Simulated assay, not measured.
Amino acid sequence: MIEKDFAEEFARDWIESWNSHDLDRILSHYSDQFEMSSPKIIQIAGEPSGTLKGKESVENYWAKALDLLPDLRFELIALMIGVNSLTLTYKGARGQMAAEVFHFGPDHKVSKAYAHYSVE
């Protein structure tokens, strides 16, 4: 079970990391075998499955996304705790609502994440 203190610290640092645009700091939350699924991967990375595997692949995608959105800022709306997982809802690029589900490994690093976005 995810502890409340860990969840709150993760959420705070994750939002701050993205808002700082510090890619190394962002990536510090994730395992090397991290897997990410997002409809934005299809748009930005051109990967038709919407899924990237491995920290290096995700790093390249996020670097490109940060270049495309130099004013990107996230605003945390809610934090939800699950069993070995968290969900953050937040305002993202251009105020679009997003929910991201994070699954954690035994090392407390994110092993899988699934991003969802409001319909525009």
Rank of each mutant, 00 (worst) to 15 (best):
A98Q: 13
D107E: 15
H108G: 06
K53C: 03
E3Y: 08
L27E: 11
Q96G: 12
S85I: 02
I15V: 15
D13S: 14
V58Q: 04
K112L: 13
T51I: 07
I26M: 12
L88W: 10
S31D: 15
F34Q: 10
V83I: 09
F10P: 09
K40S: 14
A11V: 03
L76G: 01
W14F: 15
G92T: 06
A93V: 09
Y30D: 08
F34M: 15
M36R: 12
R12L: 04
P106E: 14
A98P: 00
I41F: 00
I41S: 10
V83F: 09
N60W: 04
A45S: 13
A115Q: 03
D13T: 11
I81G: 02
N84Y: 14
L66F: 15
E56Q: 11
V101M: 11
E120P: 09
D13L: 08
S37V: 03
L68P: 09
E9D: 10
L79D: 02
M36T: 08
G95I: 00
L52P: 01
L69Q: 12
F74P: 06
Q96E: 13
E16C: 07
Y90C: 06
W62C: 07
N60P: 00
R73W: 00
G92V: 03
N84F: 12
G50V: 02
M80P: 03
F102H: 13
A115P: 03
G95E: 05
K40W: 09
K4P: 05
E9F: 01
G54W: 10
A7L: 05
L27H: 12
A65Y: 11
H29Y: 12
L52W: 02
L27S: 08
P39F: 05
E75T: 01
T87G: 02
L76E: 09
E56H: 06
Y61G: 01
D67M: 15
E16Y: 05
S118H: 13
V83S: 09
N60S: 07
S85Y: 02
V58K: 02
H116C: 14
S57E: 14
R94F: 14
I44H: 13
S57G: 13
L88G: 05
E47A: 03
A93M: 11
D67K: 15
A115T: 04
E35Y: 03
Q33F: 07
K55C: 06
I42Q: 13
D13M: 04
S118E: 15
G46E: 08
K4W: 03
L68T: 06
E120S: 10
A7W: 01
A99K: 00
P70M: 08
S17C: 07
E56A: 13
Y117I: 06
L72C: 04
S49P: 02
A115W: 06
K112Q: 14
L76A: 03
A11W: 05
A65C: 12
M36H: 13
S20Y: 02
W14S: 06
K112F: 12
W18G: 11
G92C: 09
A115D: 09
H116L: 11
E120Q: 14
K91G: 01
K109E: 13
M36K: 09
N19H: 05
N60K: 15
F10V: 09
K112G: 02
L86V: 10
A45E: 00
R25T: 10
M80D: 07
L69S: 15
E3P: 13
T87H: 01
P106M: 14
